[in-house]
């Protein structure tokens, strides 16, 4: 077989195939739910109900979507420039560490000053964490996929050391856990009485900001050009190395905001299980969103709904919650295939 480009794909092709990919994902999940001895329709019903069936469930989904919007944006920004940042997990923890270092009483500033300072410093830390693999890529040609992946393990061990050493909560009964943030360092709730914090609003603003950068600035154009064709971009006089490094700073900074928002908004302290793989799930979010920043918000809500719904479904139906992870991984693989087939036709030789 070979692939033949399609000049003008029909609307049915452009929207039907991605819809088919999502549909197939649900079929796979249904079969797996049946293997686990459950009725697939009741499983999906429980997932939907668990994700948005009540005010509490809906707020939980929005809370879960918040870090995913940040990591999804981080991945989307990087992948668009073909910088393969698989290290959002490490950058997230970098942001979380900064939130703890600055927010547990080191700076006794009013919250209007303290919170922006914490956010900016968190972004800087995350940016620095990704800058190392990015420099290794641009200077020495070391593949950033492997280095960013390896940095995830290194950084998590570093956080483990911090939580058992310098950042350990003296009142923590020996648990590897940081002290709690002071009240002024906590992101306030969006609406009084509702368990949703300003991190969610910050995530939406970040998506908007990335969209503006992508579509309205020279930097956004340069990132796109580098991603589409490095040689052509270089020939056109775009400083490719600088663009890649700037992309890395932006991507790492966005991922770090996820850690900042989880610590300052949701948890109030840092533990080693702060992120159940938000960095990796960000890759799925970004791909489902076709790397579009506004799409990231929608994809993050979808992914968060599946995770939150699967948690409650698992308790009720006894189907393992890993069903959610399977659905997202298959959705990712099927979606990239569907997108390809919207642009190419398969021909037999």
């Amino acid at each position: 077989m070979r692939l033949e480009p399609i000049a003008n794909p029909t609307a049915a092709r452009r929207f039907g195939l991605p819809a088919l990919a999502v549909g197939t994902t649900f079929v796979i999940a249904a079969v797996l739910a049946m293997i686990a001895g459950a009725d697939p329709f009741s499983v999906f019903g429980l997932i939907i109900h668990g994700a948005m069936g009540s005010k509490f469930a809906l707020l939980e989904t929005l809370n879960r979507a918040t870090p995913l919007i940040f990591t999804g944006l981080a991945v989307a920004v990087a992948f668009r420039a073909k910088l393969w940042n698989i290290g959002a997990e490490a950058q997230l923890y970098a942001g979380a560490v900064i939130a703890v270092v600055l927010g547990t009483g080191a700076l006794a500033w009013p919250s209007g000053v303290l919170l922006p300072v914490m956010a900016v410093c968190a972004m800087l830390a995350g940016a620095l964490v990704l800058l190392v693999p990015a420099l290794l890529k641009t200077r020495l040609g070391v593949d950033e996929v492997v280095t960013t992946l390896l940095f995830n393990f290194i950084f998590l061990l570093f956080v483990s050391y911090l939580l058992e050493g310098p950042l350990k909560d003296p009142m923590g009964m020996g648990w590897p856990k940081s002290s709690r943030l002071i009240p002024d360092a906590r992101l306030p709730r969006l609406v009084d009485g509702l368990r949703l914090h300003w991190g969610f609003a910050l995530a939406l603003l970040s998506a908007l900001a990335v969209w503006v950068i992508n579509t309205r600035t020279t930097f956004g154009y340069e990132m796109r050009a580098v991603g589409q064709n490095v040689e052509a971009a270089r020939f056109a006089g775009i400083p490719v190395t600088v663009v890649i490094l700037k992309t890395a700073l932006l991507s790492g900074g966005l991922a770090a905001l996820a850690g900042f928002s989880e610590v300052a908004g949701l948890k109030g302290s840092l533990t080693l299980d702060l992120s159940p793989g938000f960095g990796y799930t960000g890759i799925v979010v970004a791909m489902l969103a076709l790397l579009h920043p506004i799409g990231v918000v929608a994809a993050a809500l979808f992914v968060a709904a599946i995770f939150v719904g699967a948690d409650s479904m698992s308790r009720a139906a006894g189907v393992p919650t890993y069903l959610a992870d399977i659905m997202l991984a298959s959705a990712l693989l099927l979606m990239v295939l569907a997108i390809l087939l919207t642009k190419f036709r398969v021909r037999r030789d």
Binding site: W84, V145, Y280, L328, L337
Partner: peptide, 26 residues
């Protein structure tokens, strides 16, 4: 299909890991 080997590989790692954990629990 010639899809991005980075994306396919990472996706496959997520899929294989999730399928394994799911099967273990089942």
């Amino acid at each position: 299909f010639g899809l991005s080997q980075h994306v396919v590989g990472v996706g496959l790692t997520l899929l294989a890991t999730a399928l394994t954990f799911y099967t273990y629990r089942v």
